[in-house]
Design a protein around this nucleic acid. Structure first.
Lengths: 246, 246
DNA sequence: CGATGGATATCGCAC
DNA sequence: GTGCGATGTCCATCG
């Protein structure tokens, strides 16, 4: 045991035996602490898909919200995981310390079996601050509502997130002639999928509105791929280049 | 200091002062170790977007491949991160221990400034085992190639990933009458986007092939949403229900 | 390097 | 719960 044991804010065990690891992790799960376990382990997952992972050194993170993450030394994404809301369990089986995380609807199960536990750490964590993020699609929308001429001189926004049978349109409005305008926003370079999305909005509005009504579709993004540009031309849609704020 | 210090496989510091934390993390970065730091910190990010995060208790993971992750007590995704390939730096500024991670193309920068470091851990990690995953789209494709009648009696696959101007078709073949068949596979319930994808394949092949050639489009998936079903009917495409193996 | 599409995507919101 | 679209998506693959 280390001096950390007397500290409620955090605790650490170095190379605990399986039973000691099970006790510490089980207690931390019950306490609602954040837990990291590093050691040599195998991983099995079964649920939406299924996978097995042979022995290797990995970092396991258990969060009080029921999230489980298994990280190797590479990659931003965990090699295995469970989403928030799962139930974690610390068990002993065949003399091994194991972490089992389950959920239902859909049924999913993650089992991490440790051959050797290098370290168990627990943390009592408080974090009330929300992330303030800028440079998103909503920012782009606000810039256009502040200055509709960015789309086209005389453009008048009438609604945001206007519902159509094909889904909600980002910005709905009229051009200077009174023709209906549909605007699809993308915060980064767009491919063919965005053109298909805009096209569906225009097509369904074509049916919904007056038969002789002209409907113009605008795609607003920093840039388009060559294939997407071709699809735009083919479908008679327009493109406006608008990048993130400097 | 704990007994772990003499062990090259892992090391831990409890509540180090900023300078000690900087030394230990800087050395571990240079050594190519995996690092976890837990403590009270603020986070700033600037790059593809920008964000700030006020003080709170968070777990920071630095990987030898240049990945950085900042995890709070909630959520599966890190609240902030840097992708693999970044350069990490451990610095002292205003008496605080800071972790700075940068990359170029695009320029991105992540700064984690610690008011209080609860724990620093380092691990020498090797993991050469690959993940074996089943229940994927490739599994579904193999099942159909093994038994093409799953799509339709008499279906004959001729190619996989056949290129078209609209992208690669999952399975390309002929029905019993010799008509061209395009099959789009999805491993789970599909929405309108998959119908758009299949529709583009059929449309472009319609132009590419003989004008009088009949082209049939099949969407193979466990199920479809109501809107997607409508789009399929509208575009004259067919649906085959085929779920993951039990 | 960019383009393309899959993913146990995750996440948030509307219904 | 399902449906739908955004994401600093990440990631592998291909040209």
């Amino acid at each position: 045991m280390t001096s950390a044991d007397g500290d409620s804010a955090s605790g650490v065990l170095h190379r605990p035996d399986p039973e000691t690891a099970r006790e510490r992790v089980g207690a931390a799960i019950d306490r609602g602490a954040m837990i990291t376990v590093f050691g040599r382990c195998t991983v099995e997952y079964e649920g939406r898909a299924a996978s097995t992972l042979g022995p290797g050194d990995r970092l396991v993170v258990l969060k009080p919200d029921g999230t489980a993450l298994v990280h190797t030394d590479e990659g931003q994404k965990p090699v295995n995981w469970q989403p928030p809301g799962c139930t974690h369990e610390a068990t002993l089986a065949d003399g091994e310390f194991r972490i089992v995380s389950r959920r239902t609807a859909p049924d999913e199960r993650l089992v991490v079996a440790f051959e050797q536990v290098e370290q168990v750490s627990t943390f009592d964590v408080t974090d009330r601050h929300d992330l303030a993020l800028t440079g998103t699609e909503e920012d782009l929308r606000q810039r256009i509502l502040d200055d509709p001429d960015l789309v086209e001189a005389g453009f008048r926004p009438l609604a945001i997130e206007r519902e159509t049978p094909a889904g909600a349109v980002d910005i709905y409005g009229e051009d200077r002639e009174g023709a209906t305008v549909v605007v699809e926003l993308k915060r980064k370079r767009v491919g063919p999928d965005a053109v298909g999305q805009l096209s569906r909005y225009v097509e369904t509005l074509d049916r919904e509105l007056h038969a002789d009504a002209e409907i113009r579709g605008f795609l607003v993004a920093p840039s388009v791929t060559e294939r997407a540009r071709g699809l735009l031309a083919e479908k008679g849609l327009e493109f406006v280049s608008l990048g993130p704020p400097e």
